[in-house]
Amino acid sequence: MNNTLKGKIALVTGGTKGIGKAIAEKLIREGAQVIVTARNKPEDITGYHFIAADLAQPESAEIIAQEILDRYGRIDIIVNNAGANTGPRGGYAVLSDEDWQEIWQLNLMSAVRINKALLPSMTAQQSGVIIHISSGAAVLPIWDVTMPYSAAKAALNAYSKSLAHEVAAQGLRVLSVLPGMVKTPLMQEYLEGLAASMKISLEEALKVLTAKAGNLPLGRMAEPEEIANMVVFLASPEASYVTGTNVLMEGGLIPTV
């Protein structure tokens, strides 16, 4: 791939760290004009347009959409990457309504609202790609680690499939990418918390987590850049016949066909 997205306008939510940052950087290298959202402005925003926004707040989507359309007049690629597994460990009994609501808002409703705000401009131009960053946890939930997160991401997958069917006739493509365990700052924070709660080392915490998930056939976590490579390929004309698909990138972790 070489400048395959030159001139395209792309939005990456949660794009200042981890997978989102890698996606934004890859989109820039492929020639896209990139808009990144996050709650906090990073020190270096060279190469992209930054919009501060908390996507757990319903009004944020309209504010983001208005700024993009006012400045650029259109949107070609939406990568709904914002999300996190913020709930406490321990299963149903320790999860409050507030835990469920927080996870649902960030991992599902943020994407629903962003899409709703920007889809009219995409349908008007009869082109566009929407990619949801879901999770392998949607198809391999771990009851004491990912219960509400898995439920929200599974709902995101179903929503993505439905939306793909609805907008295909308008020339739009909609997909989901489902990473497994990825070496990101959020994963590091999670492992540190797990290690502290269990009074074990980081290496032991990683072994505990991978054992719960069924171990990693490739023997390592993914790098954020590996996820970014797939996302940018799917956003490109080279994937023009791919839509409505949930693309697993979990290093062989999911044991089913």
Rank of each mutant, 00 (worst) to 15 (best):
residue 32 A to W: 00
residue 39 R to S: 15
residue 238 E to N: 13
residue 18 G to P: 13
residue 40 N to G: 03
residue 128 G to N: 07
residue 256 T to W: 09
residue 57 Q to S: 06
residue 2 N to S: 10
residue 4 T to K: 15
residue 220 R to C: 09
residue 126 Q to Y: 04
residue 191 L to P: 12
residue 215 N to T: 13
residue 151 A to M: 00
residue 65 A to P: 02
residue 203 E to T: 11
residue 45 I to F: 07
residue 82 A to S: 15
residue 26 K to N: 11
residue 252 G to L: 07
residue 157 N to W: 08
residue 251 G to T: 10
residue 159 Y to V: 02
residue 200 I to Q: 01
residue 169 A to D: 01
residue 183 K to W: 10
residue 11 L to P: 08
residue 52 A to P: 10
residue 208 V to W: 10
residue 66 Q to P: 15
residue 121 S to Q: 07
residue 156 L to A: 09
residue 181 M to Y: 12
residue 128 G to V: 01
residue 24 A to G: 14
residue 238 E to W: 07
residue 126 Q to M: 08
residue 166 E to Q: 15
residue 59 E to A: 03
residue 248 L to Q: 04
residue 67 E to Y: 00
residue 18 G to T: 02
residue 113 R to I: 13
residue 66 Q to W: 13
residue 83 G to K: 01
residue 164 A to T: 06
residue 211 A to D: 11
residue 171 G to A: 14
residue 85 N to E: 03
residue 32 A to T: 03
residue 192 E to C: 05
residue 33 Q to A: 02
residue 109 M to T: 12
residue 165 H to Y: 05
residue 195 A to V: 11
residue 184 T to V: 06
residue 35 I to G: 11
residue 81 N to M: 07
residue 141 P to M: 06
residue 149 Y to N: 09
residue 101 Q to F: 01
residue 231 V to H: 11
residue 202 L to K: 02
residue 222 A to R: 05
residue 108 L to H: 04
residue 130 I to V: 11
residue 124 A to Y: 05
residue 52 A to C: 04
residue 226 E to D: 09
residue 166 E to D: 14
residue 243 T to Q: 08
residue 97 D to L: 06
residue 37 T to G: 12
residue 17 K to Q: 12
residue 56 A to P: 08
residue 146 T to Y: 02
residue 187 M to D: 12
residue 106 L to A: 03
residue 156 L to E: 01
residue 64 I to S: 06
residue 117 A to Y: 03
residue 99 D to R: 09
residue 229 N to D: 15
residue 118 L to I: 09
residue 210 T to A: 10
residue 28 I to F: 11
residue 88 P to W: 00
residue 173 R to H: 06
residue 238 E to I: 07
residue 232 V to P: 08
residue 48 Y to S: 13
residue 25 E to D: 13
residue 141 P to G: 15
residue 35 I to R: 09
residue 163 L to M: 09
residue 3 N to F: 10
residue 241 Y to Q: 10
residue 186 L to A: 13
residue 242 V to S: 12
